[in-house]
Computed example of a mutant assay.
Amino acid sequence: MIDLTAKQQQLSKIVHDYACRFPLTENGDAQLLQGCYDYMDAFKRVMNNASKVQMDYICQQYPGYYRFAKWMERLAQGIADGVFEVPKDH
Rank of each mutant, 00 (worst) to 15 (best):
Val53Asp: 13
Val15Thr: 01
Gln54Lys: 09
Asp38Met: 07
Leu75Ile: 12
Val15Lys: 01
Lys52Glu: 13
Tyr62Gln: 05
Tyr18Trp: 05
Arg67Thr: 05
Val86Thr: 12
Gln10Ile: 03
Met47Leu: 13
Ala19Glu: 02
Val83Asp: 05
Asn27Gly: 12
Phe43Gly: 00
Phe22Pro: 02
Cys59Glu: 11
Gln34Ala: 10
Gly78Trp: 14
Thr5Gly: 10
Asp89Ile: 15
Asp17Val: 03
Glu26Thr: 15
Phe22Asp: 06
His90Asp: 01
Gly64Asn: 06
Cys36Asp: 01
Glu85Val: 11
Gly82Ala: 02
Met1Ser: 09
Ala6Ser: 09
Tyr62Lys: 01
Gly28Arg: 06
Pro63Gly: 03
Gln77Met: 14
Gln34Val: 07
Met40Ser: 05
Met47Val: 10
Ile58Trp: 11
Trp71Cys: 07
Asp89Ser: 10
Tyr39Met: 05
Asp41Gly: 10
Leu32Trp: 03
Leu33Ile: 12
Cys36His: 00
Asn49Leu: 14
Met72His: 04
His16Glu: 10
Met72Arg: 05
Ala30Glu: 02
Gln8Tyr: 13
Ile14Phe: 06
Asp3Gly: 04
Gln60Val: 11
Lys52Cys: 08
Gln31Pro: 00
Phe84Thr: 00
Thr25Leu: 00
Met1Gly: 06
Glu85Gly: 08
Met40Trp: 11
Gln34Lys: 14
Asn27Arg: 08
Lys7Ser: 11
Glu26Ile: 15
Leu33Asp: 09
Asn49Tyr: 13
Asp29Gln: 09
Lys70Pro: 00
Gln60His: 13
Lys7Trp: 12
Leu4Asn: 04
Tyr39Trp: 08
Ala6Lys: 14
Tyr62Asn: 01
Asp56Met: 06
Gly28Leu: 08
Val83Lys: 12
Pro87Val: 14
Arg67Asp: 02
Val46Asp: 07
Ala19Leu: 04
Asp41Lys: 10
Gly28Pro: 13
Gln10Trp: 15
Met47Asp: 11
Met55Pro: 09
Ala42Thr: 00
Gln8Leu: 12
Lys52Ala: 07
His16Pro: 01
Phe22His: 06
Gln9Asp: 09
Gln54Trp: 02
Asp81Met: 12
Leu24Val: 15
Asn27Ile: 15
Asp56Pro: 07
Lys44Thr: 14
Asp3Met: 15
Met1Ala: 09
Asp29Cys: 07
Tyr18Thr: 00
Pro63Cys: 00
Val46Thr: 08
His16Gln: 08
Tyr18Phe: 12
Asn27Ala: 12
Gly64Lys: 01
Val53Trp: 01
Tyr18Cys: 03
Tyr37Ser: 03
Ala6Cys: 08
Tyr39Asn: 00
Leu32Tyr: 03
Asp81Pro: 09
Asp29Pro: 07
Thr25Ala: 00
Gly35Ala: 02
Pro87Arg: 13
Ile79Cys: 13
Pro87Gln: 06
Met40Ala: 05
Gln77Lys: 13
